[in-house]
């Protein structure tokens, strides 16, 4: 890693760690290796969203040209959101691509992602299936996102018994829980269609 990247990252890490606002906004970073190329970010799910109460981890990779190129950020925790791939965690956010600016920092990036969790952009989706559900069946989207938050992000909303029973039925058929949740979510929780999808 170049000197400039390392120097700036050290200052940024200090900024995030010492900033008292962090305890209020719920963003945090954790350094994974000494040369600061890999960083783990944490975002607390914003209140009044389906992600409330969840704790979301992000993988951050710092390119050599940082801060002149954006960091590579994706969700490590599975999340049901129109602008995040439900399969890979890849995020669709302009400032992580062509709208990056050298004045942005890890802190502002994490705050932007947190803001994206509050206001999805279904017209510029990363996951078309999620985006379609968000627009066509907002109630199903909300309960699905809540279910994912509970299952994958240690969320605190009570479990949706109806959804859980369908997941259990697929599990009884030998399907892994994660796959069961994913396929049911993509099929608007239609157990028959999910079964056909998995076994055909």
């Amino acid at each position: 890693m170049s000197n400039i990247a390392l120097n700036r990252l050290q200052r940024e890490c200090k900024e995030v760690v010492t900033n008292s606002e962090i305890s209020e906004t719920g963003i945090m970073i954790e350094i994974l290796n000494e040369n600061l190329t890999e960083i783990r970010g944490h975002i607390r799910g914003p209140p009044d969203t389906p992600y409330a109460g969840g704790s979301f981890d992000l993988d951050i990779k710092i390119p050599d040209q940082y801060p002149f190129s954006p960091p590579n950020v994706k969700f490590a925790t599975k999340i049901w959101h129109p602008n995040v791939s439900s399969q890979t965690g890849v995020i669709c956010l302009d400032i992580l691509k062509d709208q990056w600016a050298a004045s942005l920092t890890l802190r502002t990036v994490l705050l932007s992602i947190q803001a994206l969790m509050c206001t999805p952009e279904p017209k510029d989706p990363q996951d078309a299936v999620v985006a379609k559900q968000y627009m066509d069946k907002p109630q199903v989207f909300k309960s699905t996102a809540e279910f994912w938050t509970l299952k994958f992000a240690k969320g605190s909303v009570p479990v949706n018994v109806d959804y859980q029973s369908r997941v259990d039925k697929l599990k009884d058929m030998g399907v892994r829980e994660e796959e069961a949740i994913s396929v049911l979510s993509c099929n608007n929780w239609d157990l028959n269609r999910a079964t056909v999808y998995i076994f055909s």
Partner: peptide, 22 residues
């Protein structure tokens, strides 16, 4: 040196913007 490097960054082409106000 900082702004020169930013102007030359590939993501900042064809027209460079101020990193603070765009």
């Amino acid at each position: 040196h900082c702004i020169e490097k930013w102007i030359a960054a590939p993501s900042n082409q064809p027209r460079a913007q101020c990193p603070l106000c765009r």
